[in-house]
Computed example of a mutant assay.
Amino acid sequence: MDMNTQMTCTTIEERIQQIKRYLEGTLPAKDLEIFQRWMEESPANRKLVERIENEELIAFKIRYYENSHKTEDWQKVKRHLQGSKRMRFVTRYAIAATIGLLISVAVYLLYFTDVTLEAPLVAQQQPIMKGGSKAYLELATGEYITLDSNSHIPTRVDGAILKTDPKGMLVVEKEMQEDVEQEIKYHRIVVPQTGEYHVMLSDSSKIWLNSLSVLEFPVRFTGKERRVRLVAGEAYFEVTKNTRHPFIVEVENKEVRVLGTSFNINRYEQAFIATLVTGKVEVSTREKTYTLSPCMQLKEENGKVSLQKVDTREFTAWKDGWFVFKNQRLEEVLSTLARWYGIEVFYQKEKLKDLHFTGNIQRHIDISEVLQFLQKTGSVRFNLNQQMLIVSQ
């Protein structure tokens, strides 16, 4: 019997065990090659394994079958698993806590059934948190400080005072008047999913940080330049002008150099996008330095750099409490919402990602209102169950 025949003759129960052991890393070497050949036989096979790894998707589908009116479908799932002795000792509400049964249910739901969602928009069983002012500060000493509307420090660090206010701002005030040459220590502010935060540096420059962003900064600038690092995410800068000390933002292998200006940097996903609002900036990549004038945008993606004139509000309105979408792909729109509302997105059909939307939406409203707005186009439907958003036609 050859490998292909052997894999084809594998029963559903055996395949479930193979997938379980593969995901756990315990599949014997003699079976691993056979399993990998099976995954390579069809994109659907590989996709099945990848989707089973998504535990939130599995849990959602289990909840969907439990709570929906399709009791006949749920009974089919249970009948399919009756061979397991453990099935007799757990209720359907405990399935998600048992890894073996969880994968069993996942294989059946994701591979042997076709879930269709009839309701255009289902209210979440638990309220989804709106985005708001939240972050934490990691000092160079390793100390962590929570930053939110209820936190009031102040903290003295390296000749400066760190203070917070109820509006979601960290203010850095120098105590020492002279900038004595000394080792610069960088501290880190981390903004989580569903968060945003605002920083005023010791030179009075202001930085707005979007969800899932990380900024490294010193509490005091010394030497000939003012340098900060945007490690991840998105930030809007209003830089205080100082001709003797240029302000530099490091972003991976790039630098944005300014004297006094306002601009936005987006470093989500795989792209780097710098959008200039006022003043002038120099963006240096490994190969070249580009000078931007107001309303110009530089984008680097997959090693290619492009320059274009844009409406800057589309790329900066987030700091003023708005989502602004102009002919934007649905996948990009929902990625933005996912960071702000803390949801996971699943598309029933890949082509739905390429739908386009235009509109202005307030940033601090309930997600159901946002989804209803997007749904008015008639080309897409949403089903929201706790943190999982299912997108369908």
Rank of each mutant, 00 (worst) to 15 (best):
L162H: 01
E183L: 10
E196V: 02
Q375D: 05
T240N: 04
T222M: 04
E40I: 05
S293A: 11
Q17A: 10
A97D: 12
P154R: 08
K76V: 03
T261L: 07
M39C: 09
T5K: 09
A235Q: 02
S213H: 03
R86C: 05
V105I: 12
I19W: 01
L110G: 03
E269F: 07
L276K: 08
N54A: 03
R329P: 07
G359C: 09
K304L: 14
V310K: 01
I95C: 09
K70A: 10
R15N: 09
C9K: 15
N360G: 03
Q308S: 13
Q372Y: 03
T358W: 02
K309A: 11
E178D: 12
E314D: 10
W318P: 02
I153V: 04
R21N: 00
P28R: 03
V49R: 11
H80M: 12
G279W: 00
S205C: 08
K351E: 15
S133A: 13
L212K: 14
H198Y: 14
D311R: 15
L352D: 00
K351C: 11
S205A: 06
V283E: 01
H198N: 13
E301M: 15
E181D: 14
Q372D: 04
I189V: 15
N264H: 10
L147F: 04
D354T: 08
E56V: 06
Q328G: 03
M3G: 06
I365E: 15
I58N: 01
T155I: 05
K304I: 13
F263I: 03
S202D: 01
K76E: 06
A274E: 08
D179V: 05
K174V: 08
I62L: 14
E287C: 06
V172C: 11
I58Y: 00
F35P: 14
F35L: 07
T113C: 11
C9Y: 14
N264V: 05
D165A: 06
Y136W: 15
V249K: 13
E183D: 10
R63V: 01
N253M: 08
H364C: 09
E238M: 05
N210I: 02
E287L: 11
Q182S: 10
V333H: 10
N385K: 08
T116P: 04
D31E: 09
